[in-house]
């Protein structure tokens, strides 16, 4: 059961390409792997915290006032994430500050709270949050890696801003002169995200063709 909750959030209902939620941060901070990981961690923390506490409080929160309550809970966890990043990874924070602060308005988190956590026990809500967070991380990392390689010629540059000195030598240089500097700019983000989503659609379309004859024969019966 919990396994289903996890994989549903991560793959089938992937917040980025299946539901188009959290597009703003996805496009904005995917200009390097380090930024992508930073935001993925912050969003994952808020998602997990919000889903868990909303699930625990689901019998106390009155139904008519549930959305304001959810938003306040999410805002609280976002504030905590901002404070932690400011305290322990300040240089990283200054690069992605605005998008950490607006995690509050990320529909992905409110969506999980409303659709899942407010109706399910804590154990399932936790797996649902983890699955959704992993799904969002996959999308962020995929776009972040491609954009960093094409736009900057490197992978994992500046990871030390996030993890500390141990990560100072992690940077891999793939191209000494970047093949497509545009990838780091806003148009590159839109174009590459479009291509990524199209690729996902093309790969998953095969499943549809297998399923479709089955549904048609069912309809005949």
């Amino acid at each position: 059961m919990s396994n289903n909750d996890f994989s549903r959030g991560a793959i089938e209902n992937n917040p980025a390409w299946a539901q188009l939620l959290g597009l703003c941060p996805l496009l904005a901070v995917s200009n390097s792997v380090a930024n992508a990981v930073g935001l993925a961690l912050a969003s994952g923390f808020v998602l997990l915290g919000a889903n868990t506490s909303i699930s625990l409080l689901r019998k106390i929160i009155p139904d008519v006032a549930r959305l304001p309550c959810f938003v306040l809970i999410i805002a609280t966890f976002t504030t905590v994430a901002v404070m932690v990043l400011e305290a322990y990874a300040f240089d990283m924070f200054t690069r992605i500050a605005l998008f950490v602060q607006i995690i509050v308005t990320n529909c992905m988190i409110l969506g999980r709270a409303e659709a899942f956590a407010s109706r399910q026990p804590v154990s399932r809500a936790v797996f649902d949050a983890l699955g959704t967070a992993v799904g969002f991380t996959i999308a962020l990392l995929a776009l972040g890696t491609v954009r960093e390689i094409l736009g900057n010629g490197t992978v994992l540059a500046d990871m030390d801003l996030l993890i500390g000195d141990t990560a100072a030598n992690w940077q891999l240089t793939i191209f000494t002169s970047p093949p497509l500097p545009l990838a780091l700019y806003p148009p590159g983000a839109f174009l590459l995200a479009g291509i990524l989503f199209a690729a996902v659609k093309a790969l998953t379309a095969k499943d549809d063709t297998i399923e479709r004859p089955a549904t048609q024969s069912e309809a005949k019966q």
Binding site: G194, F197, A198
Partner: peptide
């Protein structure tokens, strides 16, 4: 193209608009 139908083509169009705004 089938794979680009819907959101992907919208994102690519937005990319071209963004290029113009640059």
């Amino acid at each position: 193209p089938k794979a680009f139908d819907g959101t992907p083509i919208a994102l690519v169009s937005a990319g071209l608009m963004s290029l113009a705004f640059m």
